[in-house]
C-alpha cells in the first residue's frame, strides 16, 4: 500500500517537472527516481510484507462481522423471496425410494447358512440379518427379507434387477459380480482355507515341514461342484488332483474318512467344521492361507450410489470389526444348541 502511494506521488512529481520541459534535469531526475523507486520498492516490499502479515489479525473481526451480516441477511431474503418454507431440498432418489416405501428390502439366500442367516421366516437370526436390521434401523424404516434366490448368483441377480434394495447374504466380492452390481466395503474379511486330514498329511510330509508340503500340495483335494474354488484350486495348487462333490457335507465327510487329503473353501467354513464336529477335531487340521482373500460385502444395484455411501459409512462406524474367530465365538452357543437338538 505504502509502495503504491510512493510510486503515485513520484509519478505526479515527474509529470510536473516535464511541464517545465527541462530535459537535462529530467534525465538526472529519471536516474534519481529510478534509485528512489528501487529503494522504495525494497523497503516498501518489506513493509508490505509486514502489512500483509498483520492484515489477517486486523481484518478477521471485520470479516466475521461481514459473514454474520450476510448470514443474517440470507434468511431474511429467502423468506421474502420464497413463500413456502416447509419444502426441503430433494433427497437422493435411492434413499427417497426406501423412505417412501417405509421398508428396506434385503435379498438373502433361500437356504440357511449359519452363522450368517438361519432360522424360520418369523424368526431369522445371524450376522447378515443383524447387519440388515441395523441398516434398516439407521434409515428409520422396517426390514423386509426376500429369500427367493436359491444360489448366491441368483441373489446378485435379484439386486441387479432391483427386486431388492441390497443383498447381505454371505456374498464374496468377485470381479465378475462387480461388473453388474456395486459392492460395499467388506464387512468380514476372510481368507481361503484348507481342511486337512492329519493322517493323510503325515503320509505326505516325508520329513518336510507342513508349510512346505502344503505349498507343493499333491493328492486329492475336494471342492464343491461348480464353485469358484474349482478355479482357485487349479490356480493355487496345480499339482493337486481335483475331486468335486455335490455338497460341502459330502466333501467334509470324505476328508474325515480319509478318502481325500483335504477340502478347500473359505476359512470360516473350514473352522466351522472343527467347531461343530469336535469329535473329528483330532483327525482334522485347519489351515488359513494368509495371502489369499475371500471378503464378504453388501451388494447394491449399480445405480444406488448414495445408498452405497450410506452403507459404507455405517460399516466404518461399527465399533468392532468382525473376524472369522469373533463370528465363530459369537455363535458358539447356537451350534452347541443345534448339537443338543440333533442328539
Amino acid at each position: 500500500m505504502f509502495q503504491k502511494l510512493m510510486t503515485q506521488s513520484f509519478s505526479c512529481l515527474w509529470r510536473g517537472k516535464r511541464d517545465v520541459k527541462a530535459d537535462r534535469w529530467s534525465r538526472t531526475l529519471l536516474g534519481g527516481f529510478a534509485l528512489v523507486l528501487f529503494l522504495g520498492l525494497t523497503f516498501g516490499a518489506s513493509d508490505g510484507a509486514l502489512a500483509v502479515s498483520k492484515a489477517p489479525i486486523a481484518a478477521s473481526p471485520a470479516a466475521s462481522a461481514t459473514r454474520t451480516a450476510a448470514a443474517s441477511s440470507t434468511p431474511a431474503r429467502s423468506t421474502t423471496s420464497n413463500p413456502s418454507p416447509t419444502v426441503l431440498p430433494a433427497m437422493p432418489p435411492d434413499i427417497q425410494r426406501i423412505l417412501d416405501r417405509g421398508k428396506l428390502t434385503v435379498a438373502v439366500l433361500g437356504q440357511d447358512n449359519a452363522p450368517f442367516f438361519m432360522g424360520n421366516p418369523g424368526h431369522l437370526e445371524g450376522l447378515d440379518i443383524q447387519l440388515a436390521q441395523a441398516l434398516a434401523d439407521q434409515l428409520g424404516v422396517s426390514l423386509e427379507v426376500t429369500r427367493s434366490a436359491q444360489t448366491f448368483d441368483q441373489v446378485v441377480d435379484t439386486v441387479y434387477g432391483q427386486k431388492a434394495d441390497l443383498a447381505i447374504s454371505k456374498i464374496s466380492r468377485t470381479l465378475k459380480r462387480a461388473q453388474r452390481v456395486r459392492f460395499s466395503r467388506p464387512y468380514l474379511r476372510m481368507r481361503q482355507g484348507l481342511l486337512v486330514n492329519r493322517l493323510q498329511m503325515a503320509e505326505q510330509t516325508q520329513g518336510r515341514s507342513i508349510v512346505e508340503t502344503i505349498r507343493d500340495l499333491r493328492g486329492q483335494v475336494g471342492v464343491i461342484e461348480g464353485s469358484s474354488y474349482v478355479g482357485f484350486l487349479k490356480q493355487k495348487f496345480p499339482q493337486a488332483s481335483i475331486v468335486e462333490y455335490p455338497t460341502w457335507e459330502d466333501t467334509v465327510g470324505a476328508v474325515v474318512r480319509g478318502d481325500i487329503l483335504a477340502a478347500y473353501r473359505d476359512e470360516l467354513e473350514i473352522k466351522k467344521v472343527v467347531r461343530t464336529r469336535p469329535d473329528a477335531a483330532l483327525q482334522l487340521q485347519t489351515i488359513a492361507l494368509t495371502d489369499t482373500q475371500d471378503s464378504l460385502a453388501v451388494v447394491l444395484p449399480w445405480s444406488s450410489a448414495h445408498l452405497l455411501a450410506f452403507v459404507d459409512q455405517y460399516l466404518d462406524t461399527l465399533a468392532t470389526q468382525y473376524t472369522v474367530d469373533t463370528v465363530l465365538d459369537e455363535y458358539a452357543d447356537y451350534w452347541s444348541a443345534q448339537r443338543l437338538k440333533q442328539s
Binding site: V211, Q285, T286, I287, A288, T290, D291
Partner: peptide
Amino acid sequence: VDLEMALSG
C-alpha cells in the same frame, strides 16, 4: 492349533 501360512514368500 489352526495353522496360518502363506503360499508364497
